[in-house]
């Protein structure tokens, strides 16, 4: 695909639309899913199955006034929600959904997505710092230490996958896994890696994705029973809406990355009919797991979270990295 200006604009618009649509309907799915788990109906009044709920919520949020608390740092306060949404949208541009559906494939796709992902914690820091609210401030400090702690094992695990694939190109990584389920990076039997520890890598990556996206049980940033609403305590209206959309967009990206790195992207488990539908299926199964986890577990503590990262995830992922390197050398 040749890069033209038109291409880029279309891609960005599509990415925004995809992110916004996903965010809106993931909220719906989350509310319905949570309700089912708790044996309630969930939103079911507006439209069939409550499907009109997200747009109506959006209208409600847009109609509200955006209040800026007195003494807040205005510029930072307004930038923060935009910063929450922007990196998420930019990441969508490089994610390949199938052989052909990709806005701009880059040979350093993995790097670019991680670069954007780490911008996310900036927005939390901005929001918490500028709100002039003690709860928000505490939450933003938590969020940053959490982001630092979890990006390390996440990156180490990604390096393992990159080593196996021998490329940072997302397309290439998927192509290498495309033959059958046994070639996926999560199942180590065939393909490039014979690494029996890969399922654990997958688990580590998944846990890190949960932590990176501030999802339960790692939602310390917005721990509602302690910090009221954390960094977005002072945000109303669309400021809050953007944070919300950013959060869900990040979940989608995290799941996309997991799909691409470990679950063979758009390839079929049996090598049949590869295509975007497989990608979508895997993506939403992962997201459903996110929702399922959120409504099952209590929240961890901040030191529990850091202990998990530094004492368990980082040593294990480092060991796995060395092990994989050894395997690649031997075979």
């Amino acid at each position: 695909m040749r890069l033209t200006l038109l291409n880029v604009i279309v891609a960005v618009v599509l990415a925004i639309a995809f992110a916004a649509l996903n965010a809106a309907y993931l909220v719906w799915a989350e509310r319905r899913g949570a309700a089912r788990i708790q044996r309630r109906p969930g939103p079911n009044i507006n439209g069939p199955f409550g499907l009109l709920q997200p747009p109506l919520d959006g209208i409600k949020l847009m109609a509200k006034q955006l209040t800026i608390p007195g003494g807040a740092d205005k510029i930072m306060f307004i930038t923060a929600p935009v910063l929450a949404m922007f990196p998420a949208i930019m990441s969508f541009v490089t994610i390949p959904f199938s052989d052909t559906i990709v806005a701009k494939n880059m040979s350093v796709g993995v790097l670019m997505i991680f670069a954007f992902a780490s911008m996310g914690s900036m927005s939390l820091l901005f929001a918490g710092w500028s709100s002039r609210n003690k709860y928000s401030m505490m939450s933003s400090v938590r969020a940053v230490s959490q982001a630092v702690a979890y990006e390390i094992p996440m990156l180490i695990t990604t390096i393992t996958v990159v080593m196996i694939a021998g490329s940072t190109d997302l397309m290439e990584i998927v192509h290498q896994q495309s033959r059958s389920i046994l070639h996926w990076n999560i199942f180590p039997l065939l393909g490039n890696s014979h690494n029996l520890l890969m399922p654990f890598s997958f688990l580590i990556f998944f846990i890190c994705t949960l932590a990176e996206t501030n999802r339960a049980p790692f939602d310390l940033g917005e721990a509602e029973s302690e910090l009221v609403a954390g960094f977005h305590t002072e945000y109303g209206s669309m400021g809050f809406g953007l944070f919300f959309m950013g959060e869900y967009a990040n979940i989608v990206i995290g799941s996309c990355m997991t799909t691409i790195l470990f679950l063979g992207g758009w390839s079929c488990p049996f090598g049949l009919f590869p295509g975007v539908w497989w990608f979508i299926l895997k993506l939403y199964l992962l997201i459903a797991t996110f929702i399922w986890i959120r409504w099952t577990f209590p929240r961890t503590t901040i030191y529990g979270l850091l202990n998990l990262s530094w004492k368990i995830l980082i040593p294990l992922s480092l060991f796995n990295l060395l092990f994989t390197a050894g395997l690649i050398k031997v075979f």
Partner: peptide
């Protein structure tokens, strides 16, 4: 929670 998911409301 998975089992509860499939129980009636």
């Amino acid at each position: 929670t998975f089992k509860e998911f499939f129980k009636p409301t």
